[in-house]
Design a protein around this nucleic acid. Sequence first.
DNA 1: CCACGGATTGGCT
DNA 2: GCCAATCCGTGGA
Length: 201
Amino acid sequence: MNSFDKLPFEFYNRKVTSVAKSLLGKTFVRKNCNEILCGKIVEVEAYDGKSDEASHSYNGATKRNQVMFGKAGHLYVYFTYGMHFCANVVTGKENYGAAILIRAIEPLGGIDILSQNRFGKKNISGKELLNLCSGPAKICQAFQITRGSNGANLCGDDIFILDSPSVSNNKIISTARIGIKKSIDLPWRYYIKDNPYVSKK
DNA sequence: CCACGGATTGGCT
DNA sequence: GCCAATCCGTGGA
C-alpha cells in the first residue's frame, strides 16, 4: 500500500483498538460539491462490541446502531444531545459491533469552507483554527456530516481516508475516554503526543 | 484558569 | 421519563 492511497477494506477489518491506533496520522477526506475538505486524524476513541458498556452496540443491534453491525469500513453517524452529530469508523467482522469515534482533526485542505461551516466566516484567527475540528461534533459541523452520511462506504468516492505516514508508538498517548459514564477504566482514547489540535490533554 | 448549567432531539426503559 | 460518545457561554477565583 502506497502512501496517500485510499485505505482499503482490509485496513478496517481488524481489531478495533489496532485500527484506532493506526488511524492516527491518516488523512480524512470529504468530497462535497466539487470541493475537497481534508485533515489529519489526531485523536480517536475505540468502542468495542463486547465487554464495553459504553459502546452503543453493547446491548445489541437497534435501528439507530445497525451500521455498527454492518461491514467494516463504513461510517456510523449518530445524533446526540439534541443537536450534535458524531462520526465513527466501523471495524472488525460483520455483526460484531465495533467502531472508532473520530474526536479531532488537524485541518489541512478546504479550510475556508470548514471555517464557513463552523463559524459562518472564512477568515478565522489562530485560536479559531485550533478550535475548528477539536471535538467529534465540531468535525461533523465543519465537514457537514449529518444523518445523510450514516452508512457511507469509506471505500467509495464521497468520504474516505487516505493512507499517510504512520505515527510511531512512542508518539501515541492512550487515556480513558471522554464524556462517558460506563467502562471509564478502559484506556481506549488515543491521540498524537504534543499535537495542538487534540480536543483535550 | 476552572466549574457549571443550558440548549434541544430522539432512543430506549 | 430519563438522559446522552457535546459544545458554548457565563461567572467566579
